[in-house]
Amino acid sequence: MSLKTVDLDAVTESGDRELAARAAHDFDAFAELYRRHLCAIYRFVRTQAPDDATAEDLTAQVFFKALSSAATYRGSGSYRAWLFRIAHNSISTWGKHKTRSVIVLSEVPDSADPDPSPASQAIATEERSFVRQKVAELPPAQREVVALRYLEDFSIEEVAAITRRKQGAVRILLHRARTGLRKTLEGKEAT
């Protein structure tokens, strides 16, 4: 029996398309899409929002918009990218009206660490908090492309489409963010 390599992303994407085609008139189909993408959308929104409550409100907005616009999804790109485009719009609109911009980093449970040593876990947790803090301090446009590229693993082309920027502009934003973060993180390592 030969083993075939299955591209899981492609399988998920085609499954998404099928569900999205039904989502406008079948809530169960929409609910399945919601289950598939909720965590990623929340995670992305949380990197741009000042606190958990705002992230929840923005996430709710994204899915209400996705539900109300379900019939307008044409399947020309991935459903996931379409959803992130809605998230980008929601965050942009919120950003224009918000009164404060300080991102508060609440303690979030960290995923399981393969090394159970308490000291190692403490260092890993501290590192994650430090990186999160430094990403949170980036200008909003840099923070957004960093999250889409390194957290959600979108290609430069997809990030450009989601944020309606030219690919060159995305590359520049990423380069600036990486340069700044690298300097900060190397500075911390040296201390």
Partner: peptide, 13 residues
């Protein structure tokens, strides 16, 4: 990897 891991630890309540 550090960025992905750090940001990936956010999850809804």
């Amino acid at each position: 990897h550090a960025i992905g891991t750090a940001l990936g630890s956010y999850s809804p309540r």
